[in-house]
Amino acid sequence: MGFTEAVRTCLRDKYFTFQGRASRSEYWYFILFMWVTWLVLIIVFLSPGLWMGLVEAMISGGPSGTEYIVAAFVVIVSIALCIPMLTALVRRLHDCNLSGWWVLVMIVIGLIPVVGLLASIFTTIAWFVICVMKGTVGANKHGEDPLQVQKGAEVFA
Rank of each mutant, 00 (worst) to 15 (best):
L46T: 06
C10F: 07
S64I: 00
L147P: 01
T9G: 02
F156G: 08
V90Y: 00
T66N: 12
A6S: 15
G138D: 05
M52T: 13
E144V: 04
V114Y: 15
S78C: 13
P84C: 06
D95K: 04
M106K: 02
Q150A: 14
M133A: 13
P84D: 05
P146L: 10
L86G: 10
I42K: 09
M34G: 03
E144C: 00
P48C: 08
E26A: 07
F30C: 07
V115F: 14
V108S: 10
L118Q: 04
I121W: 09
A80I: 01
L32E: 12
K134R: 15
I43Q: 13
Y15L: 03
G2C: 02
V103W: 07
F3C: 01
I112K: 14
T87H: 04
P63S: 11
G135I: 07
V90I: 07
V77I: 15
V70E: 07
S23D: 06
A126G: 10
K134H: 11
G53L: 11
G53P: 02
V114M: 11
N97G: 05
H142M: 09
W101P: 03
A72G: 08
T136W: 06
S120T: 04
V74Y: 13
G135E: 01
A57P: 01
V103S: 01
M106I: 00
F33P: 03
L32Q: 11
G116T: 08
F16C: 13
W35S: 09
A57F: 03
P84V: 01
W51C: 05
E5Y: 07
R24I: 05
W101A: 09
N97Y: 04
I43H: 11
T87Y: 01
F30Y: 15
G110I: 05
F30V: 03
M133Y: 00
V105P: 04
F122N: 00
